[in-house]
Structures are given as structure tokens and as C-alpha cells.
């Protein structure tokens, strides 16, 4: 066991520190996810609309998010805002802002995709049955859109949880950083601790993402 570095996980309060790091990762990503879903729904509906100005603006927004690495966004929000505006944003808040900015764009694109994938004739058939616009959306369009959205957005959520590891670059000590600290602190006494520690970090990420996947399956089955 020592060769694999499992023992270092139980030295001192190392396990607690890893769990604390996981909590920080989850706190950042879940708050960002909550904002992203709400904002993404709004922006996505706007994107699917007909207004050419809104379409152009959201298009530019989406492309910026796609092209810009999240790490660059983190540096801009954390260091750049201090330089240019003098704002002193806390590292965790800066991470939440960046992940929300990113998540909203991707979520909005998913919403737009799901909305326009509903065939035109569904709107027309509903109208022919005498439904009003509100009714059409509530009873026909939104339920189908949500069902199509679920697998896609779960994908996004788990991706956001995993990408929080980038926040270590601006000083947030999240689960992966704690793992690296443990490996390095034991470099002499257990040179192969990397295996055990990274395996543990993997299991922690898995434990965080698996319930979300299960929940999405449950929803898919329930709504099908």
C-alpha cells in the first residue's frame, strides 16, 4: 500500500483537506451552474428569436466564449479588473463569474438548438387546434425542449465541475491543488504517492458527477 501512496491519504488531516477542496470545487461550479441555467434559458430564447440585433450580439458573445480559453478569462476577471478598474474581486467570486459567463453561453446555445429543433408544424398544428400562444409554449414546446435539453446540459454541468481545477491558477485551493500539495509534501517519504492521490481525486470527482448523471437519467425516464 505504501508503494502506491494510499497511506499518505490518511496522514494527518489529508482526507479532510481533500474533501474540503472538493467542497470548494463544487461550491464554485454549482453556483455557476445555477446562474448559467437561469441566464442560459433567457439568452437561449432570445437567440432563437427573430431580432437581428440580439442575434448578432449573442453570436459574438458565444464566439468569444468559444475562442477564449477559460484560463485567460480567469486572469482577465481576477487580475485585469484590478488593473483597469481597481476592483478587488475575490478569487472564488472571480471563478464563479468566469464559469457563469462560460456556462451561460453554452447553455444558451443548447436552449437555442433545442428550441429550433421542434418542427414548425407542431406550432401550426397546435394553433390549428385553437391553442393560444401561451398555451402552445406551455403544453407543446417547452416540455419537448426540456426533454431534449437534459442530456446536453448534464454534459455541460459535469464539464464545468471538472474545469474548476483551473481556478488554482488564481489561488483557489480546490481538490486537485490539495492533491498536488499532498504529493509534493510527501515527495521524499513516499515518492509514488502520485498514484494513490490522483486515484483518490478521480474517485472524488466521480462521486460528485455520478449522482448528477443518475438524476438526469431519472428525469429522462420520467418525462419520456
Amino acid at each position: 500500500m505504501q508503494a502506491l501512496g494510499i497511506d499518505v491519504l490518511f496522514k494527518g488531516i489529508n482526507m479532510q483537506r481533500l474533501l474540503g477542496g472538493l467542497w470548494i470545487s463544487l461550491r464554485i461550479s454549482l453556483i455557476a451552474v445555477a446562474f448559467s441555467i437561469v441566464l442560459g434559458l433567457v439568452v437561449g430564447v432570445l437567440m432563437a428569436g427573430d431580432n437581428p440585433v440580439i442575434k448578432a450580439v449573442t453570436r459574438v458573445y458565444l464566439e468569444i466564449v468559444r475562442v477564449m480559453p477559460q484560463m485567460v478569462l480567469l486572469f482577465i476577471v481576477f487580475f485585469g479588473t484590478t488593473r483597469v478598474f481597481g476592483w478587488n474581486i475575490e478569487a472564488e467570486i472571480a471563478s464563479i463569474i468566469v464559469f457563469t459567463f462560460w456556462g451561460t453561453a453554452e447553455m444558451a446555445d443548447l436552449v437555442r438548438g433545442a428550441l429550433i429543433s421542434i418542427p414548425r408544424h407542431q406550432y401550426e398544428s397546435a394553433a390549428a387546434l385553437g391553442m393560444e400562444e401561451g398555451q402552445i409554449y406551455r403544453r407543446i414546446i417547452i416540455p419537448q425542449t426540456l426533454r431534449r435539453l437534459i442530456p446536453l446540459s448534464i454534459n455541460l454541468v459535469t464539464r464545468m465541475i471538472k474545469t474548476t481545477s483551473l481556478a488554482m491558477m488564481i489561488g483557489v485551493v480546490e481538490v486537485l491543488k490539495v492533491g498536488q500539495q499532498i504529493i509534493e509534501a510527501n515527495r521524499k517519504s513516499s515518492p509514488h504517492a502520485a498514484f494513490g492521490v490522483y486515484a483518490c481525486v478521480f474517485l472524488l470527482y466521480f462521486a460528485a458527477c455520478w449522482p448528477i448523471s443518475m438524476f438526469s437519467r431519472y428525469l429522462e425516464r420520467k418525462w419520456s
Binding site: G12, I13, E184
Partner: peptide, 20 residues
């Protein structure tokens, strides 16, 4: 103070979560 948290033995965090 900004220090390394994973460069033993100059700046690292020990098993009790203390910088060393």
C-alpha cells in the same frame, strides 16, 4: 504573503494543512 503551496521544502502544506 504569496508562497508556493507545492514546492517542498521551500513552500508546501503539511498533512495538518499548515504551510511549511
Amino acid at each position: 504573503i504569496g508562497v508556493f503551496s507545492d514546492k517542498s521544502p521551500f513552500g508546501y502544506v503539511d498533512e495538518n494543512g499548515e504551510y511549511q
